[in-house]
């Protein structure tokens, strides 16, 4: 039978499965989950993750089609390839879930997150914070004599980097929306 030389996973529909299914390396994936906008649907998704021990690194949700009653959940999750496949299959089996897209493997995508950063400081530190904010193209949305609130839109890593730079300059508070993502192209 081994002469048949079946490649592990080769018969599956997804090119993703050509990777070693037993790999133990954790990967981060961005999933777009289109759901019926009905009561409890978010609780179902979150309950699935807590009940089966999966990770949620980021989650955003909002209605995207009012007449069609559709909401879009964008979530960033991490796990081994086998776990990621399970997560997608388990999400797909929730009755009000219409579609599950793995933006990490389905081709290039754009990911954006919005962050609000409150930075307290005076003198040089305050000037430096403003200068770095300009480099990052962050907007000042609130200002006092001792503080700024910066608004920054970008990839999660850009927001991470900005937060790191602001920390020694007096980063006092931080709010992030979580990732919204769409596939590139038509």
């Amino acid at each position: 039978m081994n002469a048949l030389n079946i490649q592990k996973g080769a018969s599956s529909h997804s090119a993703y499965d050509l990777r070693d299914p037993n790999a133990q390396v954790e990967e981060s994936h961005t999933l777009a989950v289109l759901v019926e906008n009905e009561p409890g649907v978010l609780a179902r998704v979150i309950g699935l993750f807590s009940g089966r021990g999966y990770n949620i690194d980021s989650l955003t949700v909002a209605e995207v089609d009012h007449t069609g009653h559709q909401s879009r959940i964008t979530m960033v999750t991490s796990g081994t390839p086998a776990v990621i496949e399970q997560i997608k299959a388990q999400l797909g089996r929730i009755v009000p879930v219409h579609d599950v897209h793995d933006l990490t493997v389905e081709g290039p995508s754009v990911e954006r997150e919005l962050g609000l950063f409150k930075v307290r400081g005076q003198g040089d530190k305050r000037v430096e914070a403003l200068r770095i904010a300009e480099i990052f193209r962050a907007n000042v949305v609130d200002s006092t004599l001792e503080s700024f609130v910066f608004e920054l839109v970008g990839t999660p890593s850009k927001l991470d980097a900005f937060a790191e730079l602001m920390r020694p300059l007096g980063l006092a508070d931080l709010a992030r929306t979580g990732v919204a993502a769409l596939a590139r192209g038509a």
Binding site: G9, A10, S11, S12, P21, Q86, A89, G92, R93
Partner: peptide
Amino acid sequence: DPSSINKVIHVDIP
């Protein structure tokens, strides 16, 4: 049920 596939045992032909 697609979630039964590869949940516990990896299969060659789902």
